[in-house]
Structure formats: C-alpha cells, structure tokens
C-alpha cells in the first residue's frame, strides 16, 4: 500500500495530518474514558465515588479496601465462579481446536462448491439466537444431568465458537503449501503423521489465535451462562448479580477490573493475529 498513499500525502499536505491526529486523539479519549471510570470506582474511596451524589471526576483518595471487602464478602463465591469460568473457557477452546482442526483440514480437501456449502451451514448456525436454543437445551440438560455443569455450558458455548474456529483454521491451512503434504506422503509418512507432524506445526499461529479467541468468547459469554448455569454462576453472571439484584456496585466494579485486566493483555497480544479475513472468510468464501 505504501507507494500510492505516500504520493497521496504530497497532494494532501499537512492539514490531513492534523485531522488524523485530532481524530486519533478523540477516539483514544473515548476508548480510555470508560476504563478510567472503572479504575477509579474500583480503587477510589467510596465517599468520592459510588457514595457521592456527584462523584469526583478526579478522586484524590485511593484504597484497596473495595477489593478486600469484595473478596471477604463473597470469597468462596468468587473463587468458584472464577474456577468455573476458567474451566469452561478451557474446555470450549480445547474442543474448538480438536474439532476445528480436523474439520478445516477436511474442508481444504473438498471441492470448492461443497466446502462453501458446509461453511454456509456453519455460518447460518451462528445466526440462530442463543436465547432461542438455550431454552430447549436447558430442558435436555436437566434430563441428562448436564444442567449447571461446566461441561454442559461449554458444550453450548462451543456452538458460538466452532464456526469461527473453522473459518480461522481453514484460512491458516490454505496458506500451507499443498506440496508439503504430498512430499511427506511420498517420503513414506502415513496420513496421520502428515496431519499431525508435518502440517500441524505450520498451522500453530492460526491455532494459537483460534484458541485465544475461543477462550475469550467463552470468558465473555452471558446468554447461555445465565440460562444453563444459574445456580453456580460464571464470573460474568456473578458480576451481573452484584451490579443489579444485590446492589454491590463496588464488588461488581472490583470483579470487573479483575476480569478485564488479563483480557486486555490477551487482546493486545491477539491484535497482532486478528485479521478481519478470519471473520469474513465464512461469507466471502
């Protein structure tokens, strides 16, 4: 893209540059503002934040007591919710890679017409509203004993994650040279060895980003979680209950900050891997 746009700058002059910086500053401000509010509520003294009629925009007193109280009050609840979210997200990501890698490999072998039909069906499934299918699934899970369990929740959340994982991995596998597999077979490697020892290592970047993205989506998921696992909630549900029904705004803010920090780190790592092509390949393909 370099050449053409450099030429463009000669035409447009430095005014455009000012607009760009003004725009970038404007958007940065609005991206960061809500995060700033979360931090000052979680770490500020309550009489300057939630207990004030007009909370201070620049609080002067800070404390860790919100966190300490949040842990003390619902310590065991938080721990079990954290573990449940963690467990569910890992099951979701592992199943996504297991099923997704094989499906993507299979798709890369099929004629274009059939593979795009299958991708179309998968994409269509992501359009079905979660809440519509969560209700019949909850009845089935009640019968099967999967209701309120991490495994059951993970199986449902898998639906949102699996199509996206297959899109990402198909894109990755398409980039692996076809001759490589043939070469391996010619050299006497079995199909299984070619699949796991030749192609798999080359697909690792795509697998890592698919894994992280599945993990993130499960960590964030709300609809299935509130319907399929209301008794032993995951973290998002716990935060929702604290913020609404129980009215523990400070607890909700502290938990929110805890949930957000690792996820922001992950997002910044992921920003190097995320390509819009992953999201659009299902429809353009």
């Amino acid at each position: 893209m370099g050449e053409g746009i450099d030429m463009g700058n000669e035409f447009e002059g430095h005014w455009t540059r000012y607009y760009i910086y003004a725009g970038a500053a404007f958007f940065s401000f609005f991206v960061l503002l809500p995060l700033y509010v979360l931090i000052i509520i979680a770490l500020g003294a309550p009489n300057q934040t939630v207990a004030a009629y007009y909370p201070a925009l620049l609080p002067t007193k800070f404390t860790l007591s919100n966190f300490i109280n949040a842990f003390r009050g619902t310590g065991t609840l938080l721990e079990s919710a954290f573990l449940k979210s963690l467990e569910t997200a890992f099951i979701v990501a592992v199943i996504a890679i297991l099923l997704g890698y094989h499906a993507a490999f299979g798709l890369s072998k099929l004629p274009f017409k059939i593979s795009s039909l299958i991708i179309g069906v998968l994409f269509f499934s992501t359009m079905i509203p979660s809440i519509t299918i969560a209700i019949p699934i909850s009845e089935t899970f009640l019968r099967l004993g999967l209701y309120d369990s991490s495994l059951g929740l993970a199986l449902a959340q898998e639906l949102l994650v699996l199509p996206l994982t297959i899109f990402i991995l198909s894109g990755t596998l398409d980039a692996v040279p076809k001759q490589l597999e043939q070469q391996a077979r010619v050299d006497g490697a079995s199909f299984i060895r070619a699949l796991y020892q030749v192609i798999f290592p080359l697909a690792v970047p795509g697998i890592v980003s698919a894994f992280l993205l599945s993990w993130l989506m499960s960590w964030d998921e709300f609809t299935f979680a509130i319907i399929l696992s209301p008794v032993h909630p995951t973290l998002p549900i716990l935060i929702y209950l604290d913020a609404s029904a129980r009215g523990n705004v400070l607890t909700a803010a502290s938990f929110s900050l805890l949930v957000t920090i690792p996820v922001i780190v992950l997002t910044i790592i992921l920003s190097k891997f995320i390509r819009a092509g992953y999201l659009t390949s299902g429809i353009t393909g």
């Binding site: 998002p236 935060i239 920003s271």
Partner: peptide, 24 residues
C-alpha cells in the same frame, strides 16, 4: 499503538461494559 488501543473494548466483557456505563 493506536491500532492496538482501539481494539481494547473488543476484549472487555459485555457485562463489564454494561457495569461501567451503568455507573457513568
């Protein structure tokens, strides 16, 4: 730097966004 920064909200959980805007 800007393209990493503008992606941050994508990673913030939906419910956390709700809690923050509820407080604002």
């Amino acid at each position: 730097a800007f393209s990493a920064l503008f992606l941050i909200p994508f990673g913030v959980a939906t419910i956390v966004t709700g809690v923050i805007f509820h407080n604002i």
